[in-house]
Design a protein around this nucleic acid. Structure first.
Lengths: 203, 203
DNA sequence: CTTGCATTTTACCGGTCGGTCAACTAGAGT
DNA sequence: ACTCTAGTTGACCGACCGGTAAAATGCAAG
C-alpha cells in the first residue's frame, strides 16, 4: 500500500533490461549482464521476478507506458484533426528512431515488433501481451479513421481493417528501415500510410 | 569440380537448421541440437561451417533459393498481367503460412523478417545478406509496377518507392499475423497492398 | 600398394545460461 | 526488546553454449 516503493531495485533492473532487450533482443541478453548493469545481485533479481520471462513482461509494460504517455499520446490527441494524428505519429516514429540512431549508432526499431518475431512462436504468454499492445494501437488508428469519416474528410471505409493495415504498414516500414539501418526510410515511406484503404464489405 | 557432392552431410545440416531457425529463431537453436537432428557430429559441423553465423548465411541462401524457384517465381512470372502478379504473391504467402500452421501448429512468418529483427543490430554481415534479399524482392515489385504503368493499368507513380512500401506492408502484415498466430489476417489485409501509392516527386 | 585429402569421430575447452538456496541485514510494528 | 518480513548477498547448480584439436576413417588418384 506504499505509494513510494521501499527501494528502486526493481525499476533499475527494468531500466537496464529495457535498453538491452531493445538493442540486442531477448535471448541475447543474460540475467547476469542485466544485474551487473543495474548494480544488483542475481539472488536479488529473483526476489522481484520469478523468471526471465516475467522480466520481459515487465519490460513490455514499461515500454507500453512510455508509449501511451509519450509521443503516441501526443499524436493521437483527440483535439488534433484525425488524419493529422496519423501524420504526427509517423513523424514521431521517424524522429524517435533517428534520435536512437544518433545516440546508439543503430536503428533499433520497434521493441514490440522485435519481440513479436523473436518469441511469439515459443511463448504464448508474451505473445498475448504483445498482441494486446497491437490491439490497443489498432484502436487508436481506428478512432482517427472513424472520426475522419464522420467529419467527411475521407470516404467511408472499413475502419477496423484499414486501421490494422496501417499498423502493419508502420511495423513493416520500421522492419525494412532496420534492415538498412536507416531511419530515413521511415521519412520516405511513412506518409504513404494514408493511401491504404480497405473498403467496407458490401451486401 | 564434382557435380554430385561427395556426401549430403552439409545439406542435412542446412535442412535441420532451416526448420529450426524458422520456427524458433537463431539464438534459441544451438549447434548441438542441429547436429543431433542432422545425424552429424559437432566436429563434422565445423568441417563445413567455420561458425554458427556461416551456417545462418547458408540457411538464408537456401531459403532465398526456395523463394526464387518456388511460388515467388510463379507469382512474378512475366507472362502474368503485372498487377495479378502481386495478387498471386499475396495469395501464395497466405497459403504457405496457412500450410505451415496446419503442419506445425504455428504461424512462423517470414524467415527474412524474423532474422532481420533479431540479428541486424548485432551482425552487419547477416544484415547485409538480408538486405540484399529485400532489395531483390523490391525489384520484383518494381518491375510489375513499371509494366503496369506502361500498359496503362495504373496511373504513373514512383515505382521504386511504392515497391518498397509494398514489401514493407507485406512484412508488416506477416508480423501482425504472427502476433495473432493466425494466417487469416494475411487473407483479410493482403489485398490492400495494391492501394499503396507513392507519387513521383514533383518539382 | 601407397600417398594424400576430405570427412568423421570423440573428447574436450572455458564460459555462460537460467535458476536455486541458505544465510544475513535492516527497518517497521507491536 | 522482539518479531516479522522485505530485501540483499554470494556461493552454487546442472545444462548448455560456440568452438577446438587430434586421431581415426574412407576413398580416390597415382
Amino acid at each position: 500500500m506504499n505509494i513510494n516503493s521501499p527501494t528502486d531495485t526493481r525499476s533499475r533492473i527494468v531500466a537496464a533490461a529495457k535498453s538491452r532487450f531493445h538493442s540486442r533482443s531477448y535471448a541475447n541478453v543474460g540475467i547476469q549482464e542485466i544485474c551487473e548493469n543495474a548494480g544488483v545481485q542475481k539472488g536479488s533479481f529473483y526476489h522481484f521476478f520469478p523468471s526471465k520471462r516475467d522480466l520481459a513482461l515487465a519490460v513490455i509494460d514499461d515500454f507500453a507506458d512510455d508509449w501511451a504517455n509519450g509521443f503516441v499520446a501526443e499524436a493521437f490527441d483527440p483535439a488534433l484533426p484525425p488524419m493529422e494524428r496519423i501524420d504526427y505519429l509517423i513523424d514521431a516514429a521517424y524522429f524517435w528512431q533517428k534520435a536512437i540512431k544518433e545516440v546508439h549508432g543503430r536503428m533499433l526499431g520497434c521493441i514490440f515488433g522485435n519481440l513479436t518475431l523473436e518469441v511469439s512462436t515459443q511463448d504464448d504468454i508474451m505473445r498475448a501481451k504483445l498482441l494486446a499492445i497491437f490491439t490497443l494501437a489498432k484502436s487508436r488508428f481506428k478512432d482517427a479513421l472513424d472520426q475522419a469519416v464522420v467529419e467527411g474528410v475521407i470516404a467511408p471505409l472499413d475502419s477496423a481493417l484499414t486501421a490494422e493495415a496501417m499498423l502493419a504498414y508502420l511495423e513493416g516500414v520500421i522492419l525494412l528501415a532496420k534492415s538498412q539501418n536507416d531511419p530515413e526510410l521511415l521519412y520516405r515511406l511513412g506518409p504513404a500510410i494514408k493511401t491504404l484503404r480497405i473498403e467496407l464489405k458490401s451486401n
